[in-house]
Design a binder for these strands. Sequence first.
DNA 1: AGAGATTACTAAACCGCTCTAGTAAATGGG
DNA 2: CCCATTTACTAGAGCGGTTTAGTAATCTCT
Lengths: 343, 343
Amino acid sequence: MTRPTIDDIARRAGVSKSAVSFALNDRPGVSPATRERILRAAAEMNWRPHKAARALGGARADAVGLVVARPAQTIGAEPFFGLLLAGLQAGLSARSVALHLMIVEDTAAEIEVYRRWTSERHVDGFVVVDLHYRDRRVPVLEELGVPAVVLGGPSGHGTLPGVWADDREAMLSLVDYLAALGHRRIAHVAGDEAFHHTRRRMRALKDGARRLHLADAFSVPTDFSDAQGASATRALLAGPRRPTAVIFDSDVMAVAGLAVAAEMGVAVPAGLSVVSFEDSLLTRIVHPAVTALGRDTFGLGGQVAATLLAAIDEPGSVRDVRTATPRLTVRESTRAPYTARKA
Amino acid sequence: MTRPTIDDIARRAGVSKSAVSFALNDRPGVSPATRERILRAAAEMNWRPHKAARALGGARADAVGLVVARPAQTIGAEPFFGLLLAGLQAGLSARSVALHLMIVEDTAAEIEVYRRWTSERHVDGFVVVDLHYRDRRVPVLEELGVPAVVLGGPSGHGTLPGVWADDREAMLSLVDYLAALGHRRIAHVAGDEAFHHTRRRMRALKDGARRLHLADAFSVPTDFSDAQGASATRALLAGPRRPTAVIFDSDVMAVAGLAVAAEMGVAVPAGLSVVSFEDSLLTRIVHPAVTALGRDTFGLGGQVAATLLAAIDEPGSVRDVRTATPRLTVRESTRAPYTARKA
DNA sequence: AGAGATTACTAAACCGCTCTAGTAAATGGG
DNA sequence: CCCATTTACTAGAGCGGTTTAGTAATCTCT
């Protein structure tokens, strides 16, 4: 009752195990009749290749790694992560490549896993998320010489291929939109400054505001948590120069901010416009629904998968991929500010 | 510049490769001095075992599989899944077992992956989620004889060990709570009837209502989506006998329901009490914050991991694990109904 | 018809590690 | 001091495939 090996098939079909190997791998060197006989024998015995045996011979692991250093809470909370995962999967499983997922404490542990999985030949490549400013993981992966794709860019990921959306362009268009509505005091509840994209968005906000001669436009960094998003909003709404519009870097923080506005009796959108830099179920599900910059996260995962598979097939051949700039979906949370409407 | 093998270490340490294998695996048969020398050589050459080579000899794959048949949207949307994943990881990585994740179209594909990964020796066991009524996966896994743990119970998972919380008890306590507040007309926006736990909850609601002689208590099945949660709520609020309290089977649907209430001008909790059967960031983040049954999903993942590892170590030794019954966290969305307060 | 090419197949090495069987030297007991 | 046991090690088979080198039979061409 033990699992069949190619030797068993060879015996049943009356040929050598090399012939079986050829037949099963569509290689020349077996006559159609014999091939047919071998395939039937294999099917009858319900044979499946032993992954390890193939891998030992130097074949692919047919798996890629995704190592994430984040607190568990964040992973559950952000729709982004789940959608990315699903998109990655879709892209990979078409080529029957599996995904090895590992959640670790910190970047040091993450790097250790990269080293281990690489030398154990456990995976064929890696997907790197949450690109940091001066990211330590990039040089390590370059040194290991393992195929890897970074979700983020357009810079900061060294020689590794990056897949990125133009956050700068998106932020500028957002500022344009709010300014066109009449907003002059715009606040930005940003994410973690350690992240590359957070910095880029903050810079873009400044630039956009200067271009349009806006009175106030400033960013408040947070750790991306709902708690900090809420307290940042509280501080903004209680402050002396209350903004008329707030841009939140994530859907979670936008919804937290919305709750704070409700709690403080500030009507949205009448008294405050709210925009999320990330679109998801969250922004659609709440009332009022939140105007948000949306990108196709599922599709993004698919593009990352495709890029990584290409990098595995032909190392060095792959260049950066710029995905579509996030587009604004206007919902109920934005409107011209009270002052502008009065004028 | 190729990766070192035990042969290389053997040469450098001046011993045979068997000696190296013994030393590296803490087996007797090498003197302390030699062992020390071998370990140093291995460390100097930065040697790591080749997983496939070990696996070929019959060793563990040191990985478990999680195959999920759900639409991508759901995976992104529900905090539950991410938290479970993180908890699983935490439990597994302590024993350096990796998680193979696969997202598939349907149950048929899921079963096919079980078969493939089992015969390829790709994983040592499986975690099974979303237990269905008369689940087809259970007999297949039993037949394959592969260790597996089912998230769900206390019945319907055959001889496989199950990890479950007492949904029935939880629903009964929920009904008790609402009845104590004075609610007599309670609606239940349920999940998919194909799921085992949905049926159990529906039955528990009926039983609880009968016990307390409640006028109306009925369940409306949905597909767990925010869209169906919203439309079910709309129907309930527009219907002739509007309930004074609604129990939602998931956090996503509860929040969608909340938005519908706001949109229809029904104040929560003044005109309607809302309870979620699932607690998460979502229920806390919205305004009003939603009263919810909470369980430690992260911890649950850890328990599933522990149970599966035990099942792998000693097949047949593991019995069901009943986890803590979800406990109610009262927030702002529940209150005595208007009629009761008048009296 | 005979040399060379092609076809259909087999034998065996190889991937990196584990583990059993075997051997030589050191140790111990009476 | 000699035989039995233990210790410290080595040789080599085996895990399940892939792949190279080799062989016998058939085909092709002049």
